[in-house]
Write a protein that binds this DNA or RNA. Structure first.
Lengths: 210, 210, 210, 210
DNA sequence: GCCTAACCGAGACGGTACGTCACGTCTTTTA
DNA sequence: TAAAAGACGTGACGTACCGTCTCGGTTAGGC
């Protein structure tokens, strides 16, 4: 389950000693979440306090994670919403769904005050950031790129455009809104509006869809 | 100079006792910068260490800033590049200059490893983030909005588009690249390519400029 | 074998399940001795380390002793030299043999650096000290008292003297030397010299033996 | 004041920064004494608990002593009774006073349950034991040797006897009683009885005092 | 030849204390 | 009054052991 710690020995090696309790693992992650939900500032989130909250010894946490940051990666992962279901009817529809998921995620983080800044905290160490990037950000990006690739094949996207660039063009505005400008609005129709506006510059020159 | 601390008593009240040394203030900020440049991870940047490096008492730092985060705001401000000179010849040209400044800033932060994450660290406290936002991010955003407003007046931008939205559309992709994807490329012509692509969807429907 | 733990159920109750391994018991005591011989300070002698050294589970130790101190009692007992053979020719000769045994024990502890302070460590708990006292010190004292009682009967010792007091008078000086003053000398003829000097004040007033 | 820590810089070096509080030092030693008096077993005397009791930070203790054992040396020293006033009228009288002080000390430790075993605890480290030896034991021994030396000069003691040996002969029995046999009696006239008995074997052959 | 109970190694578990470090405040002397 | 220095109470750090508790596996009778 952990994304950084070597969670399990290779399957051939028989388990020696008392196995680690999954219930404890859940208690730690849930306890951390509870603290964040109660509004405890990230700076006051100490391992000691998490252990106290979860009713767990400190060593039990350090047995699973190397420090607060690595634990946060798993906490964030545990509340990260699942990838949205893509309709697959058209490039536009898929992108609208992706952006809408992003919008909702931004709204959730803002209102619940969770993870508002946990994401930022994780940048303090390149190692942690990589783990978070690999576990959370990269899969989303891959999904977006896949959608764009399909759209390009179907002729809904200019053939000469770099897919990475197209991805940042489509996703960037919404991300910037939800990450950098916590007081920016994220109104209901924003996803559709953005996709429609942005696809304008990305469609093939003589578009079949007009 | 400080953006958060009430640095000086009101000017009418004559200064009593020994005045604060500006040299000391510089020494503190420069010492912090030196530590960051030497690759000291942000998590190991303690007030105690900064005081040691700057050859300064801890109380002298606390007399000026309320904590590490507030000090960081001023440190970051001190190395933030000046606003770029805008040509003013056209909306496109101005936006290219703005994005090019952003690209270079991203490159600088990546190579020098300074401030790579100091920006993230400051999100730990809403108060600090606001200070940084007001001192650094907001002015840039105002400048960008001003450019777009002028472009709209000149008919280079669709009249029905929300300027805030247009701003995120134009700036978002570059920001996402430099902030979230530290290993994403920021090649030379990126600014022009982005502006040309993005303006496609933002131009007036039957544009006079083509 | 253990002096504190109720090592075995009463013999009528038939042993159920796998019996405790005596080899394991030896391995634990020998492992502890090896650590002490290697110069590991008493303060660093943890149950965990002993278990590691003996290649034994912690629970296996706790099944036999209630803690480190109780284990130490048995370790010390295992290296305590056997009671010396008494000649029985005279009070003086017996006392010389007893003191000589004490002198040699003091020398051994000093040079081998074993048990130098284990004896002291055991005073941390009255319970442990009692066990050690009963298992090691008291038998020796009983032996000494018996020698003195015989001497008194034979008229080699004043009849009006308290035997307990006489014991401390004879044994005290050598004990103090070997326990309190680790750098005090314990030269070869010390036992005889002490006995001859001390008996002076303990002989009957007009001694028949002169 | 501390016997192990380098307590004060050399007097030429002017004191820099806030000086160490003597009140704090007293609070720590007194707090430790209070705990011992309340019957807290030595094994449960942690630095953490001492700090809590004294209302003091752990670092404040570690700034003065290197650990629990070194602190104990000073605690024991602080309650060690002052050297007794010697009458100087005769060897016998001086020795009686010395032994009487020892007897009373043994009684005090037994009844108050203080220092009963602190003395033993300090043997865990040779360094600590040396400090305790130098600060407490050695001065007492020097005093006893001085008394014996004077007695020898005055002809009250055999000229051929080694003073160190004589010291152990006279002091040993009482020490053994009070240290090793906690339940041995220390009745009122014990000091005089011991001195009178022991001097028997130590007087010059044809004694002037008869 | 099973059955069953206790033993055994390993190591997880909730705790407590370790000794260090930084926090932000305070008390010195010196300027 | 500022400034360097450093003591102070507080509290978190990450580690080590404590003594207890599961695990899978072993080793003896008793059936």
């Amino acid at each position: 389950m952990n994304s950084l710690a070597a969670s399990h020995p290779s399957p051939e090696v028989p388990v020696r000693g008392r196995p680690r309790s999954e219930a404890v693992e859940r208690a730690i992650i849930d306890g951390t979440m509870r603290l964040l939900e109660e509004g405890v500032p990230l700076a006051e989130l100490s391992i000691e306090r998490i252990a106290r909250t979860a009713g767990v010894g400190k060593a039990t946490i350090y047995r699973r994670w190397r420090g607060k940051e690595e634990l946060l990666v798993d906490v964030v992962r545990s509340v990260e919403p699942a990838d949205p279901e893509l309709p697959g009817t058209s490039l536009r529809d898929d992108l609208v769904v992706l952006l809408e998921a992003l919008r909702r995620r931004g709204l959730a983080n803002r209102t619940s005050a969770i993870l508002h800044n946990a994401h930022a905290q994780m940048k303090t160490s390149p190692r942690i950031w990589n783990a978070y990037h690999n576990a959370v950000i990269a899969p989303r990006r891959r999904l977006g790129l896949e959608v764009l690739r399909r759209g390009q094949q179907e002729g809904e996207l200019r053939a000469d455009i770099d897919l990475e660039l197209a991805h940042d063009i489509v996703l960037g505005p919404m991300l910037v809104r939800s990450l950098l400008h916590p007081d920016a609005e994220l109104p209901e129709g924003l996803a559709e509006q953005l996709v429609d506006t942005l696809l304008e510059g990305l469609r093939p020159v003589s578009s079949p869809t007009g």
